[in-house]
Amino acid sequence: MRSKSIGDKIFDIINVMIMLIVVIVTLYPFLNALAISLNDAGDTVRGGITIYPRVFTLRNYELIFQNPLVYNAYFITIARTVIGTVLSLLLTAMLAYGLAHRNLKGRNFYTILCLITMFFNGGLMPTYFLIRSLGLMNNFWVYIIPSLISVWNMMLMRTYFQGIPEALEESARIDGANYFTVFFRIILPISTPIVATIALFIAVGQWNSWFDAFIYVTKQELKPMQSVLLSIISEARFAESIAQSAAGAGVTLGDVGRTAQVNVRSITMATMVVTIIPIVIVYPFLQRYFIKGIMIGSLKG
């Protein structure tokens, strides 16, 4: 290696400093939220909580988990993620598998039909009224059905399936297997990298989705976690109601105003942590597969 010049060294130092600033600015809001969620609500109001709790408590989490609303919302989030991922993956993979076959009748027509939707869409108003006419308002299936296929994901899978040697399929076909058998018994098992990647794309999208619940669902019992968090940050009264209904008689009258105020911030942060914790837990895994997906996409493009 050549010896480094002074200019090089200065550049390296500045570069490392820039990286540290990015890391701090990225992480600080998360760590601060975690610290507030684990800090005594009464103490938080004094201010100055940074990245560690000053008076450690799990009380904020107890408060939100005493609320049946939170359990229900969590159940809805898990249900939409699991059901949505399985069904969406199945339909997307089948379409991709079919379109990967050069001998598919009408392949060009189907492909063009798919590609057009990547550049044009009807927009909010016609979609909204379509959902209404289909009777999907205030219906759990509004989380699943309208988002079943993403053409982008389908294209990634199709590219992958096209790379599988045809001989593998042909030998099974000669033995008399139909395309469904080949797909489920041979193609899916050897395509785990792309299946896992697309499953994670869909699952994260489902977990984070909030707008469908916001415009199509008014029933509280059908709202997912994102909606609960959205209500908490939009209406302070919502957070108070969660805190108070749980706190019950434990709050003395003189404290009500102050405690309610304090609780809003603590409850918000605890709810936020509960909302993202599954994502953070699987994050290292998630990250690897997401990057893989992007790579397959960029190789194609």
Binding site: T117, F129, L130, P146, M154
Partner: peptide, 16 residues
């Protein structure tokens, strides 16, 4: 998949 596309992509396109 194609039926889904027609309902959820093409009907709104017509609806515009």
């Amino acid at each position: 998949g194609i039926i889904w596309l027609i309902i959820f992509a093409y009907i709104p396109m017509y609806g515009v």
